[in-house]
Write a protein that binds this DNA or RNA. Sequence first.
DNA 1: ATAGATGTACTATCCGATATAGTACACCCC
DNA 2: GGGGTGTACTATATCGGATAGTACATCTAT
Lengths: 125, 125
Amino acid sequence: MFSIDLTSRIPIYEQIYENIISLIVKGTLAENDQLPSVRAFAKDAGVNPNTVAKAYQELERTGIIYSVPGRGSFIAKPDSSVFQNAVLTEFDNAAMACADRGIDKQVLAEHLDNIYTKHGKGEKL
Amino acid sequence: MFSIDLTSRIPIYEQIYENIISLIVKGTLAENDQLPSVRAFAKDAGVNPNTVAKAYQELERTGIIYSVPGRGSFIAKPDSSVFQNAVLTEFDNAAMACADRGIDKQVLAEHLDNIYTKHGKGEKL
DNA sequence: ATAGATGTACTATCCGATATAGTACACCCC
DNA sequence: GGGGTGTACTATATCGGATAGTACATCTAT
């Protein structure tokens, strides 16, 4: 259910963080759904419970989940802006890097078309 | 002349690598221009010569510069594709992450517009 | 009340990538 | 020959991330 890449440069706890968000956006996880426990997640993913705990704490800090001592962790009321800010910043940075290297805007526009058609989403235009 | 961020998550040698490419794309560095020596660069940037050497070796490995033993390092014949592949991949990844979070394609298109107008480039359309 | 599961906190340790330090070598130009 | 160059190599230091282990308070279920 969760895809973790141990070899990535991106820290595991960040991958978990992004993974949860992704599942919420995709609708797999909805408001008040219970997350796997820190220990269960850790066992399933083959990582240390502390690493999962770190991800959960970060998710709670940003208001994406809420944790009840003794009960578990649950999805908070989804707020799309929380999810979108980070990736939009990434997008801007990537686009600026492309501009710096003299890549035409039209080329990037074409890439956008390909991505949004392949993903079968964003056909709201 | 070179901007290095010691606090960044990105390794210094990668920053140097990107820095050189950026200067080539911007036209500040042209074919056969000589780069500062490993030791000079290191002193100027306040880093270890080995770190600069690592960046230069990577630049030579990818064909962006060429080094002449005893002479110095020089800009090779620019091949834009070498510069653009990496940033285009980054762009695609960022765009896909946005799509995964349900961001409208049109929103990204607007971001592109802003970036390319602010940068005063890419007005070739 | 008891047992078990939960999130959380804390310390200690390990590991890998990165960066640094220092030295050495071969090459080229003046 | 002297000084500059890129390159190679070993060793050390540092830092973030991950792990290991323990402990505690809280909740649920029995």
